[in-house]
Design a protein around this nucleic acid. Structure first.
Lengths: 183, 183
DNA sequence: GTCGACATGTAACCAGTTACATGATTAA
DNA sequence: TTAATCATGTAACTGGTTACATGTCGAC
């Protein structure tokens, strides 16, 4: 056997799983799904079938090892990072390169085109959006207060909070503009 | 022939093209690519080959018509919305339903995992991000002042401005936190 | 005579989603 | 006995992207 050659760069989801795997040994896909959702669910939420595929690839690439166990319950596959896996994770987190592609927000795009059609339609769009953002903000503020059981990452949570608050401010400003235009 | 039956819901990119097509008649794929970039480029930027594919689908679905012309230069295909195309666009913009899926920002995810590895690595990540956001903000502020030739949509531009400013604030706050932790 | 802007695509790939399939174990 | 939770996947599709192919025309 040769030392494993990583074929190519990993996807962000693959790094996310690597990151989660780095926190503790012997986690199953099922465990990871729950932890993913609690720890970074508001910014990254892969589909279940996708996660299992990722785990298989990580193992194939020599970044993790599996161990199938069965103890009271259905059998599960426990994963653990290899040295190569830890290296890959460390290289990723310490590389400050970032691809900043445009945030593809369907709401913004719709608003852009709605404005030409009718200011009233645009305004109701913004009101609906505002309500959703406000609801999310309330949820996140709740999480900030509690810390929950899986302690939320306060730094990234506050990123979401800061943006949500700025978004609400923009909504109010925009609604005034639109109402002035249609009234 | 039957009246055209739209097979299924369109993708957001398809609606974006529909929206652009709604602004004026007889635009070619090439024209649209430039207009897309100037009008909504900071929030939606499909690949060139993808745009041509979208145009083909819109025509196939009866939402637009093509006309191949050739006048001094390579031949081009000019598109124009049909009645059904205008209806589809109108239905889309007036529907306030929104799917708010988590914003998949690789930076945030990386930061989350970098923090465990080392506060210093996390801080340099945030500094790099801050620089990028500041550069974008300056660009957008320039656009806000000028209005450019294709008048930018001020409302959506201000959305980007508001978020960018909030992001910078969060960066500064976060850097303090990280420096306190590592110092 | 060659460079850059105009103009349209094809083929292959990619990261991910949805819907479905399967089965064990525990609690009501 | 039936529902909920645990646990892992497959097949088909979606909505793109990258790299490449092809050619016209005007300006220098």
């Amino acid at each position: 056997v040769w030392t494993s050659t990583r074929r190519k760069a990993l996807s962000t989801t693959e790094y996310a799983v690597l990151g989660l795997l780095g926190a503790r040994d012997d986690q199953s896909g099922y465990d990871l799904l729950k932890r993913l959702d609690r720890a970074v669910g508001y910014m990254w939420a892969p589909a279940k079938s996708g996660l299992y595929a990722v785990l298989g690839r990580l193992e194939e690439d020599g970044l993790a090892t599996v161990r199938r166990v069965r103890e009271r319950g259905p059998s599960k596959e426990l994963y653990r990072l290899t040295g190569a896996g830890r290296d890959a994770l460390a290289a990723w987190v310490s590389d400050p390169t970032l691809e900043l592609r445009p945030p593809r927000d369907p709401f913004l795009l719709k608003l852009h085109f709605a404005r030409r059609a009718s200011p009233a339609a645009a305004a109701s769009l913004v009101r609906a959006y505002r309500a959703r953002v406000a609801a999310l903000l309330a949820e996140w503020e709740e999480q900030e207060r509690e810390g929950a059981d899986e302690p939320v990452d306060l730094i990234t949570l506050r990123f979401a909070l800061a943006r949500a608050r700025a978004t609400l401010g923009w909504c109010d400003e925009t609604l005034e503009t639109l109402e002035a235009a249609s009234g």
